[in-house]
């Protein structure tokens, strides 16, 4: 049981190395071995989406991967979105705050990590497209409406800036 493996990954731009068991989930590895507790787990069976991270740029559920599968890969977590903290939120984080897109905030990191690449690919999404993009993430507090508003606001701000 104690077959331990060294896992080398790049997380939020920094190389990280830690030793872990073969059976450790990537979500637990990030949270407990690397101390990046912004990634949350709500089900550990791939349904709630709270554990979503970017894995080589793609949103994936970190509870459905083993840490050893991340060897040599590039990972981004919610901690990497606004590297200089409180005063400079990522525009999507800013929009979530503006529209009250979070209540308990437990699901929020997963939503953000799902939506950042979505908005990059779809700078001007319709409400239905947004709802499709969100549909793999569960939120028990907000009823999703203010999250949809946040995505629309972020998209609008980006278009306005781009057009200016």
């Amino acid at each position: 049981m104690s077959d331990r493996h060294t896992v080398r990954v790049t997380v939020n731009g920094e190389p990280r190395v830690a030793e872990t068991e073969a059976r450790t989930l990537l979500s637990d590895f990030l949270r407990h071995d690397l101390g990046l507790t912004g990634t949350h787990v709500g089900c550990e069976h791939g349904v709630c989406g709270a554990c979503t991270i970017l894995f080589d740029g793609e949103p994936v559920r970190s509870c459905l991967l083993l840490a050893v599968q991340a060897e040599g890969r590039t990972i981004e977590t919610v901690e990497g979105l606004a590297p200089d903290g409180r005063d400079h939120l990522h525009p999507l984080q800013e929009a979530f705050r503006e529209t009250h897109g979070l209540q308990c905030g437990f699901c929020t990191p997963g939503f953000l990590m799902t939506l950042v690449p979505f908005l990059e690919e779809n700078p001007d999404p319709t409400e239905h497209e947004i709802r499709m993009a969100l549909s793999g993430n569960l939120c028990r507090c907000t009823g999703y409406q203010h999250i949809v508003d946040a995505v629309q606001l972020a998209a609008k701000k980006k278009t306005d800036e781009g057009g200016a």
Binding site: L36, V41, R86, L89
Partner: peptide
């Protein structure tokens, strides 16, 4: 808008786990 949001949005809010 909420005072607590920046911590929650940046993954720096403490939950029990």
């Amino acid at each position: 808008r909420r005072n607590e949001d920046p911590r929650l949005l940046t993954g720096r809010a403490l939950f029990v786990d």
